[in-house]
Write a protein that binds this DNA or RNA. Structure first.
Lengths: 222, 222
DNA sequence: ACTTCCCTGTAGTGACCGTTCCATGCATAC
DNA sequence: GTATGCATGGAACGGTCACTACAGGGAAGT
């Protein structure tokens, strides 16, 4: 058990068991008892590694986010003759295909989002922060590529990038929920539609003069 | 009897108290104790009118849905010289403006969606059913107007209508969650973007020949 | 061999959960 | 007045929740 101690294998086991329980029983159905049953370790071990249930869930959120960061698409720059939307398609499609089933992470996070703000659990706070961080990954890639290609037209590239990143996040959230409702919404076609919208935003940005652009976009988020 | 029970004012009080508790404390924080505290009636009254907590929540879902049906936008037909998207704008904008705060209904429903399917509570089952029903309200209006105006081009109007209805529902879900995350996503601008997308779908449907249209759209839906 | 420290095992804790029991009101009808 | 049935009041029920007190194991250092 030496190796187990040093490598923190028990902590990992608890973390993974918790994630499995969340994905099987949902947020409300996640109890310490189920987690201990799942990982074979007693509750005292759980409370040895984690201060309380809230901190454990926060750790689950962080754990999954880090996993996503490793497996996330590589944001390669757009080549000279390439279309930005085509590259985006290539980057996002595998991820969208997994959205229906694979992401217990998003399910847990969305449950946390729907909880009241006031009570402000560590898990919820962390998810909101990581969600924002993840969105910035999108945003910066967009901003870089828009700046390079000049596809944003008269509008500030950062502004268009923020808009597009928000659009992506909102769309994925909606897609996950739609899937949970058992509506057979096809991820592939939905991405098609989304990319069409992205193209349309870019088109609009390029066409529109600077003056009128401000009217439509200044309200988009903080 | 059942009819006598359903007409009672106490039943209504319990129902409203439950809705308030849900909107304040979220799904997980909704307990019988809090509901009785809120409405001033004892738990025995709650169990006089409702079989159990699950049935009470199912009744809350139905109650709010019926309220929405009454307050929903009137789906007036599109006039001769009018644009379909412009009318849609007029119909949806007030509703979208309320989405951020007002709809405890959607918050409860989304929490139910994120619960596991197997356990299959009455409340969850009912929300899924009403969600589908509500979506069909959209769908039929779209289908009618598309059939009348011929805006669907070569594609079957029902198919385009289904696609647009799904798009609307997914977008509203995502918008509610985004708002819960505290991202200052502006509902007005988001609706602008959404309507642009609708217009784009219609444009694509009108332009595309029948043969290629099938490739993109057959996957949308069940 | 002895201490040290990390982790596990057992057996709880009180609090709160949904739910139930049953006596009591309180109208209305006889 | 007395009977009838809907609805309330209050006090409990067993169960499960998150969490803890504490003793013990077992590897590592000395």
């Amino acid at each position: 058990m030496t190796a187990a101690r040093r490598s923190g294998a028990s902590r990992e086991r608890i973390l993974e068991a918790a994630a499995e329980v969340v994905s099987e029983h949902g947020y409300a159905g996640t109890t310490i008892a189920r987690i201990t049953e799942r990982c074979g370790l007693p509750a005292s071990s759980v409370y040895w590694f984690f201060e309380d249930k809230d901190e454990l869930l926060a750790a689950v959120v962080l754990h999954h986010y880090e996993g996503w960061l490793e497996r996330r698409p590589q944001w390669r720059p757009v080549g000279p003759g390439e279309d930005l939307v085509a590259v985006l398609d290539e980057l996002l499609r595998p991820w969208f295909r997994d959205l229906g089933e694979a992401t217990a992470y998003l399910r847990l996070g969305q449950s946390l989002l729907l909880e009241p703000r006031e009570h402000d659990s560590a898990a919820r706070t962390r998810f909101v922060a990581l969600r924002r961080e993840g969105m910035q990954v999108f945003e910066e890639w967009f901003a870089t590529e828009l700046r390079r290609s000049g596809a944003a037209g008269e509008r500030p590239p950062e502004e268009v990038a923020a808009e597009l990143a928000r659009l992506l996040v909102v769309a994925t959230d909606g897609l996950v929920l739609s899937h949970r409702a058992g509506e057979g919404l096809d991820s592939d076609l939905f991405l098609d539609l989304l990319l069409d919208t992205v193209a349309e935003v870019l088109q609009g940005a390029a066409d529109r003069p600077a003056g009128t652009a401000g009217d439509r976009t200044d309200r988009m988020g903080r």
